[in-house]
């Protein structure tokens, strides 16, 4: 049996910094996304939107609707974080449809980075919106006895966010790999189709959960 590693291979080193494959893939995805958005938004029209503009507006509108539905506030300041989470994760999850590409979200480093960003964003926004004391007071609810549990929940839910996304994508990658190693032709296609659904659903879930955490922190909804 061939040795399987759960870590992404190191592509090259920049001085002491090792640059993994997922980082390189992320850079490529970033470039593609920015270029697409740059050329897609160059000629925006109020009256007669072209097909590209309609697609972009639909994506942005979808993210705005998530924020509006879940948090119950206007999306304005949260749109860059939430929207980018969805777009980036969805793109990463769909990237293995191209042959030879390994999704960056299959590695715990990437999802850990996303989880950390959500973690710090939640607390930063909570403190910013409520004030430090008011925000800390939410950890004493419903009873002061629950403080350790509340603090622990902050870490476990971030950890579960990370493991959920990486575990889903990585396990599905492994499943497809095993199926391909068993039957190489046609049979993996349904699994690949399933990977589209799983990828989009996981991106949606990650975004929704991040929105719920932020909404709970800034107090527009019950803390989840």
């Amino acid at each position: 049996m061939e040795k399987v590693s759960l870590n992404a291979p190191i592509v090259f080193h920049v001085g002491p910094v090792p640059v993994g494959l997922e980082v390189v893939t992320t850079w490529v995805i970033m470039v593609v996304l920015v270029v697409l958005c740059y050329f897609g938004t160059r000629k925006l029209s109020v009256d007669e939107p072209g097909p590209w503009q309609v697609v972009l507006e639909a994506i942005v509108g979808f993210c705005e609707d998530i924020i509006r539905d879940v948090m119950g506030t206007e999306p304005g300041p949260f749109l860059p974080l939430i929207g980018t989470l969805f777009i980036y994760i969805a793109t990463c999850n769909l990237s293995p449809l191209l042959p030879g590409v390994k999704p960056p979200t299959a590695s715990f480093e990437t999802t850990g980075a996303l989880g950390l960003i959500v973690f710090f964003s939640v607390h930063a926004l909570g403190v910013q919106r409520r004030g430090l004391l008011h925000y800390l007071k939410t950890f004493f609810e419903p009873y002061p006895v629950f403080v350790p549990l509340n603090v622990l929940a902050e870490f476990t839910r971030t950890f579960s966010l990370m493991v959920r996304l990486a575990g889903n994508i990585m396990s599905h990658e492994l499943t497809i790999g095993i199926v391909i190693s068993l039957v190489g032709l046609l049979v993996p296609i349904p699994f690949m189709a399933l990977s589209i659904l799983i990828g989009l659903v996981q991106a949606y879930i990650f975004t929704i959960l991040a929105t719920v955490f932020i909404g709970g922190a800034i107090g527009t909804i019950e803390k989840g």
Binding site: A8, V17, P18, V19, G20, E22, V23, T26, W27, M30, L33, V34, C37, L79, P80, L81, G83, T84, I87, Y88, P104, S107, E109, T110, G112, A113, L114, L116, I117
Partner: peptide, 17 residues
Amino acid sequence: ALALQATNFVILAWLLH
């Protein structure tokens, strides 16, 4: 890799914004 990905995400968020 964690730090690089976090940076990447922040940059991407700014660019998309």
